[in-house]
Write a protein that binds this DNA or RNA. Structure first.
Lengths: 118, 118
DNA sequence: ATAGACTCTGACACTTGTGTAAGGGTCAAG
DNA sequence: CTTGACCCTTACACAAGTGTCAGAGTCTAT
């Protein structure tokens, strides 16, 4: 499928789909014309990229286990470096979630306080 | 207290403390010499700012209810605009937390999968 | 009073996504 | 074959935080 369709399906802008390619996250085939030609599995991949990225993971990091995103079966080089990086990233996510929760609580209390004084 | 001490106590760089002031989040007194002179309550305020900011709230937004951060008692202009903005922000936080959780789960599953194939 | 640590302002740079515009091909339907 | 929608690349710009450097003043302990 062409880039416009993928963009439409995923809700990710054409700009960003090209950017993902530039960052090495997507490698669409090219037609004679130079048009990008995406496979249907790219839709799922883009979704996963979005989720991870909007959760604070850098594209640089996500790129490191792309094959995980892409395939159900075969696993890639499970090098210790990557495992360690992932542990660190998971810890960071846990911390971040804690922070978010605290902020949510704090904001909620401000909100109630304000509202009750209106 | 001087900026260095506040920085040391809060773990926030001197650079950022000055930045917070430029953004209207802190208003330290000044000595004759021009040195900033922070009150002890600023330590708590900076902590709250950090928490909210690292949770995705923009400084611009945080500024809007600074008096909440600062005082225990008196509430300020609870204008409807602000309440609405806060509702929206809380919703955004809830969404973000959901995303983070999903990413955490996903990352965890990649991790296990990789580790088990090592 | 002198040294070393601290502070001041201002400015420049970098990051990571993201939008947008320019100038120019491609494609499909009428 | 023409037109309108779509695609290509390149490039400029911006946001929000954050680091760092320069040049200059201040503070404190010896």
């Amino acid at each position: 499928m062409k880039i416009g369709e993928l963009s439409h399906r995923t809700g990710v802008s054409v700009r960003m789909l090209r950017y993902y390619e530039a960052e090495g996250l997507l490698k669409p085939a090219r037609r004679e014309s130079g048009y990008r030609d995406y496979g249907s599995e790219d839709e799922r991949v883009v979704g996963a990229i979005r989720m991870l990225n909007t959760s604070g993971l850098k594209l640089d990091f996500i790129r490191r286990f792309l094959s995980c995103l892409r395939s159900e079966g075969p696993i890639l080089h499970p090098c210790p470096d990557l495992l360690a990086a992932m542990e660190q990233e998971m810890q960071a996510l846990d911390d971040q979630i804690k922070r978010y929760r605290k902020s949510r609580t704090l904001l909620g209390s401000y909100y109630s306080e304000m509202r009750d004084h209106s």
